[in-house]
Amino acid sequence: MKMASPLDEKAAPSPLPTERHKSFGRGVRNMDVVWRDKINAYLRAHRYELVRSLRTLLSAPFSSVITILVIAIAIFLPIALVIIVNNIQLLGGNWDGRPKMTVYLQLDASENAILTAKQTVLALPGVESVNYIPADQALEEFKRHSGFVDILYELDENPLPAVLVVVPDKIGLSNDGSKVLLRQIETLAIVDSVQYDLGWVHRLNSFMALANRFIVVVTLLFSVGAILVVGNTVRLGIENRRREIIVGKLVGATHSFVRRPFLYLGVWYGLGGGLVAWLMAELGLFALSGPMVELAALYQANFQLQGFGLINSALMLVCSGLLGWLGAWLTVAHHLDEIEPL
Protein backbone atom coordinates (compact mmCIF):
# COMPACT_ATOMS: atom_id res chain seq x y z
CA MET A 1 0.00 0.00 0.00
CA LYS A 2 1.45 3.28 -1.13
CA MET A 3 1.04 6.37 0.98
CA ALA A 4 -0.51 9.12 -1.09
CA SER A 5 0.80 12.58 -0.46
CA PRO A 6 -1.71 15.42 -0.69
CA LEU A 7 -0.33 16.42 -4.10
CA ASP A 8 -1.16 13.03 -5.54
CA GLU A 9 -4.77 13.99 -5.43
CA LYS A 10 -5.20 15.22 -8.96
CA ALA A 11 -8.80 16.18 -8.55
CA ALA A 12 -8.67 18.68 -11.37
CA PRO A 13 -11.96 19.69 -12.92
CA SER A 14 -10.79 18.46 -16.33
CA PRO A 15 -11.65 14.79 -16.29
CA LEU A 16 -9.77 13.62 -19.34
CA PRO A 17 -6.15 12.67 -18.77
CA THR A 18 -5.26 13.95 -22.22
CA GLU A 19 -6.85 17.29 -21.50
CA ARG A 20 -4.88 17.56 -18.34
CA HIS A 21 -1.60 17.06 -20.10
CA LYS A 22 -2.55 19.55 -22.77
CA SER A 23 -3.33 22.22 -20.24
CA PHE A 24 0.19 22.01 -18.88
CA GLY A 25 1.58 23.32 -22.15
CA ARG A 26 -0.32 26.58 -22.19
CA GLY A 27 2.22 28.75 -20.49
CA VAL A 28 2.92 29.91 -16.99
CA ARG A 29 -0.27 31.82 -16.33
CA ASN A 30 -2.51 28.93 -17.27
CA MET A 31 -0.40 26.58 -15.24
CA ASP A 32 -1.03 28.77 -12.23
CA VAL A 33 -4.73 28.55 -12.94
CA VAL A 34 -4.50 24.79 -13.26
CA TRP A 35 -2.74 24.60 -9.92
CA ARG A 36 -5.22 26.89 -8.28
CA ASP A 37 -8.03 24.75 -9.65
CA LYS A 38 -6.33 21.65 -8.33
CA ILE A 39 -5.81 23.11 -4.90
CA ASN A 40 -9.39 24.36 -4.82
CA ALA A 41 -10.67 20.98 -5.90
CA TYR A 42 -8.52 19.35 -3.25
CA LEU A 43 -9.78 21.63 -0.50
CA ARG A 44 -13.34 21.17 -1.72
CA ALA A 45 -12.97 17.41 -1.59
CA HIS A 46 -11.76 17.64 2.00
CA ARG A 47 -14.51 20.00 3.06
CA TYR A 48 -17.02 17.65 1.45
CA GLU A 49 -15.74 14.61 3.34
CA LEU A 50 -15.37 16.56 6.57
CA VAL A 51 -19.06 17.39 6.53
CA ARG A 52 -20.12 14.00 5.19
CA SER A 53 -18.14 12.01 7.73
CA LEU A 54 -19.53 14.07 10.61
CA ARG A 55 -23.00 13.44 9.24
CA THR A 56 -22.26 9.71 9.04
CA LEU A 57 -21.13 9.80 12.65
CA LEU A 58 -24.25 11.62 13.79
CA SER A 59 -26.56 9.40 11.77
CA ALA A 60 -25.78 6.53 14.14
CA PRO A 61 -25.36 8.42 17.42
CA PHE A 62 -25.63 5.41 19.73
CA SER A 63 -22.89 3.30 18.20
CA SER A 64 -20.73 6.39 17.67
CA VAL A 65 -21.02 7.29 21.34
CA ILE A 66 -20.13 3.74 22.40
CA THR A 67 -17.04 3.74 20.20
CA ILE A 68 -16.01 7.17 21.42
CA LEU A 69 -16.45 6.11 25.06
CA VAL A 70 -14.30 3.02 24.58
CA ILE A 71 -11.58 5.15 23.03
CA ALA A 72 -12.02 7.75 25.78
CA ILE A 73 -11.40 5.16 28.47
CA ALA A 74 -8.33 3.89 26.65
CA ILE A 75 -6.97 7.43 26.50
CA PHE A 76 -8.11 8.39 30.00
CA LEU A 77 -6.07 5.78 31.88
CA PRO A 78 -2.64 6.96 30.72
CA ILE A 79 -3.70 10.58 31.27
CA ALA A 80 -4.77 9.81 34.82
CA LEU A 81 -1.44 8.09 35.49
CA VAL A 82 0.51 11.02 34.10
CA ILE A 83 -1.43 13.45 36.30
CA ILE A 84 -0.91 11.31 39.42
CA VAL A 85 2.82 10.89 38.85
CA ASN A 86 3.20 14.60 38.05
CA ASN A 87 1.58 15.48 41.34
CA ILE A 88 3.75 13.05 43.31
CA GLN A 89 6.78 14.56 41.64
CA LEU A 90 5.51 17.99 42.60
CA LEU A 91 5.12 16.90 46.21
CA GLY A 92 8.65 15.54 46.11
CA GLY A 93 9.86 18.76 44.56
CA ASN A 94 9.01 20.59 47.77
CA TRP A 95 12.36 19.30 48.90
CA ASP A 96 15.13 20.93 47.05
CA GLY A 97 15.89 18.53 44.27
CA ARG A 98 19.51 18.35 45.30
CA PRO A 99 20.51 15.83 47.92
CA LYS A 100 22.07 17.33 51.02
CA MET A 101 23.90 16.01 54.03
CA THR A 102 22.46 17.23 57.29
CA VAL A 103 25.09 17.27 60.01
CA TYR A 104 23.64 17.51 63.52
CA LEU A 105 26.11 18.96 66.00
CA GLN A 106 26.39 18.33 69.73
CA LEU A 107 23.81 20.31 71.65
CA ASP A 108 26.48 21.95 73.79
CA ALA A 109 28.81 22.91 70.90
CA SER A 110 30.14 26.47 71.10
CA GLU A 111 29.72 28.97 68.30
CA ASN A 112 33.48 29.11 67.71
CA ALA A 113 33.87 25.36 67.55
CA ILE A 114 31.01 25.23 65.08
CA LEU A 115 32.58 27.84 62.79
CA THR A 116 35.90 25.97 62.85
CA ALA A 117 34.12 22.72 62.06
CA LYS A 118 32.35 24.45 59.17
CA GLN A 119 35.71 25.44 57.68
CA THR A 120 37.07 21.92 58.20
CA VAL A 121 34.11 20.34 56.46
CA LEU A 122 34.26 22.83 53.60
CA ALA A 123 37.88 21.80 52.99
CA LEU A 124 37.00 18.12 52.66
CA PRO A 125 37.02 16.60 49.15
CA GLY A 126 33.53 16.16 47.75
CA VAL A 127 32.02 19.21 49.43
CA GLU A 128 30.67 22.06 47.38
CA SER A 129 29.24 24.30 50.07
CA VAL A 130 28.36 24.28 53.75
CA ASN A 131 25.49 26.19 55.27
CA TYR A 132 25.34 26.77 58.99
CA ILE A 133 21.93 26.83 60.61
CA PRO A 134 22.01 27.92 64.26
CA ALA A 135 19.70 26.12 66.67
CA ASP A 136 17.28 29.09 66.97
CA GLN A 137 16.90 29.36 63.26
CA ALA A 138 16.39 25.61 62.96
CA LEU A 139 13.53 25.85 65.45
CA GLU A 140 11.92 28.70 63.52
CA GLU A 141 12.11 26.75 60.28
CA PHE A 142 10.76 23.67 61.90
CA LYS A 143 7.80 25.63 63.17
CA ARG A 144 7.15 27.00 59.74
CA HIS A 145 7.40 23.79 57.73
CA SER A 146 5.99 21.10 59.92
CA GLY A 147 2.58 20.54 61.36
CA PHE A 148 3.81 20.36 64.96
CA VAL A 149 3.68 24.06 65.86
CA ASP A 150 1.44 23.54 68.82
CA ILE A 151 3.59 20.89 70.45
CA LEU A 152 6.70 23.05 70.08
CA TYR A 153 5.14 25.90 72.00
CA GLU A 154 4.71 23.57 74.93
CA LEU A 155 8.47 23.02 75.21
CA ASP A 156 10.55 25.29 77.43
CA GLU A 157 13.83 25.01 75.64
CA ASN A 158 14.96 24.42 72.11
CA PRO A 159 15.33 20.67 71.57
CA LEU A 160 17.05 21.18 68.24
CA PRO A 161 20.80 21.15 67.72
CA ALA A 162 22.72 23.45 65.39
CA VAL A 163 23.02 22.04 61.94
CA LEU A 164 25.52 22.16 59.13
CA VAL A 165 23.92 21.56 55.78
CA VAL A 166 26.52 20.14 53.46
CA VAL A 167 25.93 20.24 49.73
CA PRO A 168 28.13 17.63 48.10
CA ASP A 169 29.64 18.07 44.67
CA LYS A 170 29.88 15.33 42.06
CA ILE A 171 32.47 13.36 44.00
CA GLY A 172 30.45 13.66 47.18
CA LEU A 173 27.35 12.38 45.38
CA SER A 174 28.98 9.29 43.90
CA ASN A 175 28.46 6.03 45.70
CA ASP A 176 32.09 5.66 46.91
CA GLY A 177 32.80 9.36 47.43
CA SER A 178 29.70 9.80 49.54
CA LYS A 179 30.74 6.96 51.86
CA VAL A 180 34.22 8.44 52.38
CA LEU A 181 32.80 11.91 53.02
CA LEU A 182 30.24 10.55 55.44
CA ARG A 183 32.92 8.74 57.40
CA GLN A 184 35.18 11.80 57.51
CA ILE A 185 32.42 14.05 58.85
CA GLU A 186 31.21 11.51 61.38
CA THR A 187 34.69 11.27 62.93
CA LEU A 188 34.66 14.96 63.85
CA ALA A 189 34.27 15.32 67.65
CA ILE A 190 31.65 18.04 67.41
CA VAL A 191 29.35 15.98 65.24
CA ASP A 192 26.50 14.16 66.87
CA SER A 193 25.00 12.43 63.87
CA VAL A 194 24.77 12.77 60.14
CA GLN A 195 21.70 12.29 58.08
CA TYR A 196 22.32 11.82 54.47
CA ASP A 197 19.12 11.96 52.36
CA LEU A 198 20.89 10.74 49.25
CA GLY A 199 19.21 7.37 49.70
CA TRP A 200 15.81 8.98 49.68
CA VAL A 201 16.57 10.93 46.55
CA HIS A 202 17.86 7.84 44.86
CA ARG A 203 14.79 5.90 45.88
CA LEU A 204 12.40 8.64 44.79
CA ASN A 205 14.24 9.05 41.52
CA SER A 206 14.18 5.37 40.72
CA PHE A 207 10.52 5.20 41.71
CA MET A 208 9.77 8.05 39.35
CA ALA A 209 11.79 6.40 36.59
CA LEU A 210 9.79 3.24 37.17
CA ALA A 211 6.51 5.13 37.19
CA ASN A 212 7.44 6.92 34.00
CA ARG A 213 8.42 3.67 32.33
CA PHE A 214 5.12 2.20 33.48
CA ILE A 215 3.28 5.17 31.98
CA VAL A 216 5.06 4.67 28.67
CA VAL A 217 4.10 1.00 28.59
CA VAL A 218 0.49 1.69 29.59
CA THR A 219 0.25 4.52 27.07
CA LEU A 220 1.57 2.28 24.31
CA LEU A 221 -0.78 -0.56 25.23
CA PHE A 222 -3.84 1.64 25.45
CA SER A 223 -2.91 3.49 22.27
CA VAL A 224 -2.79 0.18 20.48
CA GLY A 225 -6.16 -0.54 22.06
CA ALA A 226 -7.59 2.73 20.77
CA ILE A 227 -6.13 2.07 17.31
CA LEU A 228 -7.71 -1.38 17.24
CA VAL A 229 -11.09 -0.05 18.35
CA VAL A 230 -11.06 2.61 15.64
CA GLY A 231 -9.81 0.08 13.14
CA ASN A 232 -12.58 -2.35 13.93
CA THR A 233 -15.27 0.31 13.78
CA VAL A 234 -13.92 1.58 10.48
CA ARG A 235 -13.82 -1.98 9.15
CA LEU A 236 -17.53 -2.31 9.87
CA GLY A 237 -18.07 1.02 8.14
CA ILE A 238 -16.23 -0.27 5.09
CA GLU A 239 -18.40 -3.39 5.02
CA ASN A 240 -21.55 -1.26 5.28
CA ARG A 241 -20.44 0.95 2.46
CA ARG A 242 -19.11 -1.73 0.14
CA ARG A 243 -21.53 -0.76 -2.59
CA GLU A 244 -20.55 2.89 -2.39
CA ILE A 245 -16.86 2.00 -2.65
CA ILE A 246 -17.40 -0.22 -5.68
CA VAL A 247 -19.53 2.37 -7.46
CA GLY A 248 -16.97 5.05 -6.66
CA LYS A 249 -14.17 2.97 -8.13
CA LEU A 250 -16.29 2.27 -11.21
CA VAL A 251 -16.82 5.93 -11.97
CA GLY A 252 -13.21 6.94 -11.46
CA ALA A 253 -12.60 7.53 -7.75
CA THR A 254 -8.93 7.55 -6.80
CA HIS A 255 -7.63 5.54 -3.88
CA SER A 256 -7.39 8.69 -1.80
CA PHE A 257 -10.99 9.60 -2.59
CA VAL A 258 -12.22 6.20 -1.46
CA ARG A 259 -10.01 6.27 1.62
CA ARG A 260 -10.80 9.79 2.72
CA PRO A 261 -14.25 9.35 4.36
CA PHE A 262 -12.90 6.54 6.52
CA LEU A 263 -9.81 8.47 7.53
CA TYR A 264 -12.01 11.39 8.57
CA LEU A 265 -14.21 9.02 10.50
CA GLY A 266 -11.13 7.73 12.32
CA VAL A 267 -10.01 11.25 13.16
CA TRP A 268 -13.45 12.10 14.54
CA TYR A 269 -13.47 8.99 16.71
CA GLY A 270 -9.99 9.77 17.99
CA LEU A 271 -10.74 13.44 18.66
CA GLY A 272 -14.06 12.60 20.29
CA GLY A 273 -12.40 10.00 22.49
CA GLY A 274 -9.62 12.43 23.44
CA LEU A 275 -12.10 15.15 24.27
CA VAL A 276 -14.20 12.88 26.48
CA ALA A 277 -11.04 11.55 28.19
CA TRP A 278 -9.93 15.11 28.85
CA LEU A 279 -13.32 15.99 30.31
CA MET A 280 -13.17 12.91 32.53
CA ALA A 281 -9.73 13.92 33.79
CA GLU A 282 -10.77 17.52 34.47
CA LEU A 283 -13.92 16.37 36.25
CA GLY A 284 -11.90 13.92 38.30
CA LEU A 285 -9.42 16.64 39.30
CA PHE A 286 -12.28 18.96 40.17
CA ALA A 287 -13.85 16.28 42.35
CA LEU A 288 -10.54 15.56 44.10
CA SER A 289 -9.28 19.10 44.52
CA GLY A 290 -11.62 19.98 47.42
CA PRO A 291 -10.72 17.02 49.64
CA MET A 292 -7.07 17.42 48.64
CA VAL A 293 -6.92 21.02 49.86
CA GLU A 294 -8.58 19.94 53.12
CA LEU A 295 -6.09 17.12 53.54
CA ALA A 296 -3.18 19.44 52.88
CA ALA A 297 -4.60 21.95 55.35
CA LEU A 298 -4.64 19.25 58.02
CA TYR A 299 -0.87 19.07 57.63
CA GLN A 300 -0.75 22.86 57.48
CA ALA A 301 0.73 22.50 54.03
CA ASN A 302 -0.19 24.34 50.90
CA PHE A 303 -0.66 21.93 48.06
CA GLN A 304 -2.81 22.12 44.98
CA LEU A 305 -3.48 19.37 42.48
CA GLN A 306 -2.01 20.14 39.10
CA GLY A 307 -4.07 19.40 35.99
CA PHE A 308 -2.90 18.71 32.50
CA GLY A 309 -2.23 22.25 31.37
CA LEU A 310 -3.34 23.93 28.18
CA ILE A 311 -0.47 22.87 25.94
CA ASN A 312 -0.49 19.27 27.15
CA SER A 313 -4.26 19.10 26.68
CA ALA A 314 -3.96 20.40 23.13
CA LEU A 315 -1.12 17.96 22.46
CA MET A 316 -3.18 15.12 23.88
CA LEU A 317 -6.10 15.99 21.59
CA VAL A 318 -3.84 16.11 18.55
CA CYS A 319 -2.39 12.73 19.50
CA SER A 320 -5.89 11.28 19.95
CA GLY A 321 -6.84 12.51 16.49
CA LEU A 322 -3.67 10.99 15.09
CA LEU A 323 -4.40 7.68 16.82
CA GLY A 324 -7.84 7.61 15.23
CA TRP A 325 -6.38 8.46 11.86
CA LEU A 326 -3.77 5.72 12.20
CA GLY A 327 -6.36 3.14 13.22
CA ALA A 328 -8.51 4.05 10.24
CA TRP A 329 -5.54 4.15 7.89
CA LEU A 330 -4.29 0.70 8.86
CA THR A 331 -7.74 -0.79 8.32
CA VAL A 332 -8.39 1.06 5.11
CA ALA A 333 -4.99 0.12 3.72
CA HIS A 334 -5.77 -3.48 4.47
CA HIS A 335 -9.39 -3.71 3.31
CA LEU A 336 -10.03 -1.19 0.56
CA ASP A 337 -7.83 -2.85 -2.03
CA GLU A 338 -9.80 -6.06 -1.57
CA ILE A 339 -12.96 -4.33 -2.68
CA GLU A 340 -12.73 -4.20 -6.46
CA PRO A 341 -15.64 -4.15 -8.88
CA LEU A 342 -16.07 -7.47 -10.69
Partner: peptide, 8 residues
Protein backbone atom coordinates in the same frame (compact mmCIF):
# COMPACT_ATOMS: atom_id res chain seq x y z
CA UNK B 1 -20.83 11.31 -7.67
CA UNK B 2 -18.55 11.47 -10.75
CA UNK B 3 -18.49 15.26 -10.50
CA UNK B 4 -17.71 15.18 -6.79
CA UNK B 5 -14.94 12.71 -7.50
CA UNK B 6 -13.55 15.04 -10.15
CA UNK B 7 -13.73 17.95 -7.71
CA UNK B 8 -16.26 20.25 -9.36
Amino acid sequence: LPLIISGY
